[in-house]
């Protein structure tokens, strides 16, 4: 078991109840879609996994370690096991493709030899060979998201979290990005993806978790057609 949520609730200081008594288990190697309307609590749930938000009540475990009881100084180690892909890519505009990916390894203190090898490897994996020296502004949206995914993969995470990764992309590009995420999942990385895009989810045949008003309203196992 990679991820466990036990009776997790989150009430923000302004009184908004984002999550309401969520219990959830995710296995190693799973691919999980997190669906639901805006404000259903998808982002809150995802942010709890890398401890940007803490629950008001309940327990969360990642690889059997409590995220809730973790000390502030232990958070970096937790995050090094998680790769995050953002809707708006969050690339550094003044760094090249290569530097953006290397950045993720530099900040966790990897040696320059490791960085060189791994960056080349993940650039090939996401299909951006030849674009190493381009700046994000010179790339299409799909290419920018590939850089984002390569950066998330650089530190060989146990878990890849993608929060609306196709939200800013057209249908064809979205399908390409999905294909890439499925490939990554096939190599053994657990993937959690929050999304609005029903079409992508329908055709995928993966486990789907439906959230509404902070509660799980459906948990469809892989192979069954959700929605």
């Amino acid at each position: 078991m990679l991820v466990q949520f036990y009776n997790v609730s989150k009430i923000y200081p302004n009184g908004v109840k984002a999550l309401d008594d969520i219990s959830l288990k995710i296995d190693r190697g799973e691919f999980l879609f997190l669906m639901g309307p805006s404000g259903a609590g998808k982002s809150t749930l995802v942010k709890m996994l890398f401890r940007e938000e803490l629950p008001t009540r309940g327990q969360i475990f990642l690889a059997s370690r409590s995220i809730v009881r973790m000390k502030r100084g232990e958070v970096p180690r937790l995050r090094r096991n998680i790769g995050i892909v953002f809707q708006d890519f969050k690339l550094l505009e003044n760094k090249t493709v290569y530097e953006n990916i290397a950045f993720a390894m530099e900040v966790v203190n990897a040696s320059s030899k490791e960085i060189k090898e791994r960056v080349t490897e993940v650039i090939n994996m996401v299909g951006l060979k030849g674009k190493e020296k381009s700046f994000p502004g010179e790339l299409s949206g799909g290419e920018q998201q590939r850089v984002g995914i390569a950066r998330a993969l650089a530190n060989r995470p146990l878990l890849l979290i993608a929060d609306e990764p196709t939200g800013n992309l057209d249908i064809d590009t979205s399908n390409e990005i999905m294909e890439l995420l499925f490939n990554i999942n096939r190599t053994g990385t657990t993937v959690i993806m929050a999304t609005h895009a029903r079409e992508l989810v329908k055709s995928a045949g993966k486990r789907v978790l439906m959230l509404e008003q902070g509660k799980i309203v459906a948990d469809t196992p892989p192979g069954e057609i959700a929605l």
């Binding site: 995050r79 090094r80 969050k90 550094l92 950045f103 993720a104 900040v107």
Partner: peptide
């Protein structure tokens, strides 16, 4: 701030930043 936020989420320590 975007760079700092990213560094934090990637898992760099406060002192490294």
């Amino acid at each position: 701030r975007k760079e700092i936020y990213l560094m934090k989420l990637i898992g760099s320590t406060d002192w490294f930043i």
